[in-house]
Amino acid sequence: MTLDFGLIVQNLPEILAAFWMTIWIWIVSNILAVAFGFAVATLRRYGPGWLGLLLRLFVEVIRGTPFLVQLFLLYFGGPFIGLSLDPIPAGLLGMTVYATAYYSEIFRAGYNAVPVGHVEAAECVGLTRGQIIRRILVPEMTMLVLPQCVNMAILMMKETAILSIITVPELTLVVGAIGSQQYAFVEAMFLLALFYWFLVEVSGFLGRIAEARLSKFRFAHS
């Protein structure tokens, strides 16, 4: 087996487009999922009981089934209930829904990890519930959940590869197709693997820097 970097050079524009596709779907779905995940966790905590139960069911179902099956259900099953989506919107929606469930669990644990006393101290000086959430819980939680959020984002980076199965033209699909055309599928996959590895390591590195910068807010306890 020879590693043929010509494979990349010859198809650079296509690969760059695919790379861009992977990156933007990853970033947009993660940003949306962090926002929705936070909303889900907050509603489960402060919302009415029936809504909390419903959201819990949603989270459990998403976390208990494979992402691929969710994608198939959305992409192939969607049209039967009037939801005909092209691969890219379907992929984006699927990623967002999937990640929302996981992020919501991270935030739920984050809410629970803030010591009750910190909230009581805020109540005692007269902060309202909204102020307590905004000024105490969210910032405290942020530093608690940041490592898990970074992990989750990296996990999602790898999950983007699965979008190739519903023909989203992202890296895995495009590089795989180029490899097949040139009868160099193994080489192509090998380069692809190295590339994902690099992406994951770089994201992990950046995540650790962010954590280090927040570490001075670490918990003070007697």
Partner: peptide, 12 residues
């Protein structure tokens, strides 16, 4: 005003 055993200062 209330002062707690565990201080309960906001760490951030």
């Amino acid at each position: 005003g209330m002062v707690f055993q565990q201080f309960n200062l906001w760490p951030h």
